[in-house]
């Protein structure tokens, strides 16, 4: 069987190299993460997140809202400003669906050419201006990828400094993993034609982030 033959070859090649305590050796390599990742003190986690999310390469926009209840009104303004149809693909999560969406057509699934979706991010990462989405029955993947306009809600308290903090927050063991963890940093882009940067390649072209400050 190929499996055993491959592993045997590997073990032979490594006979004198294997660590005696593999886990300890692996942990020692990442014991001081601040030495090898971008640190940003004295800038606050929130300021760093906003600066990165709205930077030239990430291209999102950020708006503070006082509470989740203020979301429908804020979304209404976005739709009006961009002259879009009042239809929202809404993540089927209780905290979103129980809000008052009167005046909008809401659907819980994105169509192939969906214009706009509103989804909740489970966390955000300040270092890179990224949003973190974990799949769940009320958090499907495609809602974050199909729409042209991606509107994201994130709680200010769930903005974490670094990617490692997000791993710690959700758990690093095999059992703690959901089917997928999407780390999304801005909008879909491509540089495949002469390295020129263009937005809206396959996924969203616009990203607007509502930061709930309560």
């Amino acid at each position: 069987m190929s499996r055993d033959a491959i592993l045997r070859k590997i073990d032979n090649a490594n006979a004198v190299r294997m660590s005696s305590d593999v886990a300890a050796a692996a942990a020692a390599l990442i014991a001081e993460p601040d030495g090898y990742r971008a640190t940003f003190a004295p800038q606050s986690v929130y300021d760093r997140f906003v600066a990165k999310a709205t930077s030239e390469t990430v291209t999102a926009t950020v708006e503070d809202i006082a509470s989740l209840e203020a979301l429908p009104e804020a979304v209404a303004a976005y739709i009006a400003n961009n002259e879009l149809v009042p239809r929202i693909a809404l993540q089927p999560r209780d905290s979103l669906t129980e809000l008052n969406w009167s005046g909008f057509e809401t659907v819980d699934q994105a169509q192939m050419n969906e214009t706009l979706a509103v989804t909740f991010a489970d966390a955000a990462i300040a270092e890179t201006g990224s949003l973190v989405f974990r799949t769940a029955p009320d958090a499907p993947v495609l809602l974050n990828f199909l729409p042209l306009h991606h509107l994201v809600v994130v709680r200010r308290s769930s903005i974490l400094p670094h990617m490692e903090d997000a791993f710690d927050h959700f758990g690093t063991t095999a059992d703690a993993q959901r089917r997928s963890l999407n780390v999304i940093t801005g909008t879909s882009g491509t540089a495949d034609i002469e390295a020129k940067n263009v937005r809206g390649a396959h996924g969203p072209r616009f990203m607007h982030i509502y930061c709930v400050t309560d």
Partner: peptide, 24 residues
């Protein structure tokens, strides 16, 4: 590779669709 701090989409996949998942 392209001179940005992180790629736009970084996804960690773990197994197939779970019970109750709507896609995957």
């Amino acid at each position: 590779a392209i001179g940005t701090e992180i790629t736009q989409y970084t996804t960690f996949f773990n197994g197939p669709k779970r019970d109750g998942d709507r896609d995957g």
